[in-house]
Design a protein around this nucleic acid. Sequence first.
DNA 1: AAGTGGTCTAGACCACACG
DNA 2: GTGTGGTCTAGACCACTTC
Lengths: 260, 260
Amino acid sequence: MALGSKETSQPPSSDDFALDGEGPLFRQIERAITGMILRGHYKAGDRLPSEADLTTKFGASRQTVNKAITELAKQTLVARNRRAGTVVSARFQETFQLPLPDISEVVLERGDLYEFRILKRDRVVNGESGMTWSAIPKGSALLYLEVLHLANDAPVQLERRLVNLAAVPRIAKETFNDTTPGKWLLAKIPWSSVRHQLRATAADNALAGILGVAVGAACLVVERQTFHLAVPITRVQMTHPGDRFQIDSLFALSGFENAD
Amino acid sequence: MALGSKETSQPPSSDDFALDGEGPLFRQIERAITGMILRGHYKAGDRLPSEADLTTKFGASRQTVNKAITELAKQTLVARNRRAGTVVSARFQETFQLPLPDISEVVLERGDLYEFRILKRDRVVNGESGMTWSAIPKGSALLYLEVLHLANDAPVQLERRLVNLAAVPRIAKETFNDTTPGKWLLAKIPWSSVRHQLRATAADNALAGILGVAVGAACLVVERQTFHLAVPITRVQMTHPGDRFQIDSLFALSGFENAD
DNA sequence: AAGTGGTCTAGACCACACG
DNA sequence: GTGTGGTCTAGACCACTTC
């Protein structure tokens, strides 16, 4: 079971460049090379054969080989350099995909009953009455929404949202009888960039009352700011009771999804 | 400033298929199509021209057009279907890249002084003395490590780690004078899949004492399990004081990074 | 100077899904 | 059937970087 096969590992033999015949050729090549790296035939810092060599070894065109290796480079498994060649990375990926879907889908996915309630809905002026969104000039018209999301009647998320009314005037007439503001915005307004922040906070009195947890209880906060072509669209703070919500993500190198 | 240009948006004219001449052709095509979608010339559910048509409109080869659209499909901006064609997605990406680098780099990046202390180091048997890792058979030999990470002498992370000794026997001799266990493992042992969980917890007495926070303080917990070719390597719980640590991530559609 | 990756084209065959 | 994307090849030119 020992993985410490590095000390005794062999350099890649011609057999290691064998393909398994499953699926597209470029994926087979991807798997073959990933496999050699994972099995220690290529170690961190080692140089892979050039594309021209791989073309011969795999019996594929250069385009196909290039597509495979480009994909490995995107996964940060290798680094590519002109003239110097392709080198196995010393360190693996440090950025991971985390799914942050609409809370309604998380709840429904679990088979629970989903419901939401609009607690507040106010037109506010940026910078006044304690509402400030620094990405937007003071004095701008904003819509403030407070929405409680419930799973089987238990609160799982308090959503506190500011919407830039100059960018999304139509939202003023929307009543949100059928969809949540989050889904409405996602469907109506495209975005070009998104910023996320994750942190933990203790519930204050107001939050504790709304979420039905003890004062001081740990909560997971996801804050999201959405922009469209440099125009701020919406900023939302999603606060979850720490004991009823977590984010879960599984990542596998492509071709090795079933290696668990 | 209003973005509600959808109601008045025009169907794409031939001018919209103009390229800006910057960088590789496939990126120009990518930007051109992304731009048409973001500006509302193509709305959710609309069908893009076929690859053959785009080949003509952009004056590029099919390979090049295909590469551009394949990239858009990976970003979930469009969905591709044989026979039915390429359709603009009704909903945008719901999975985001979050950076989770080694804590030492986060601290050093901020310009703070970084230090770590190994608080505990025990050989344990899985299932005994309160240590259980369900991915591994009971009775397996594990190494338990407790490491405190500090920024400017203030604790920012408590790391509690289990290592599968059968998979990583060499770690038994490692003293971690120079590197943290996390970095050591990353450098020595490759992984093929990783699972992450994020949640908030309240500090209990022990945790509060170690982190130097009040009992009950909110903490952000990142749990990571790493596997290599189906073999569990390590499981680590990284607990951060909620007020001294957060995860931050900015994502932009490629080609629109400067649109903020 | 020469090797390596970056990109592009023209042409081809195939698989799938819809009518 | 037939249109659409999925994939592949052979060949080419170029840019960058190291030798």
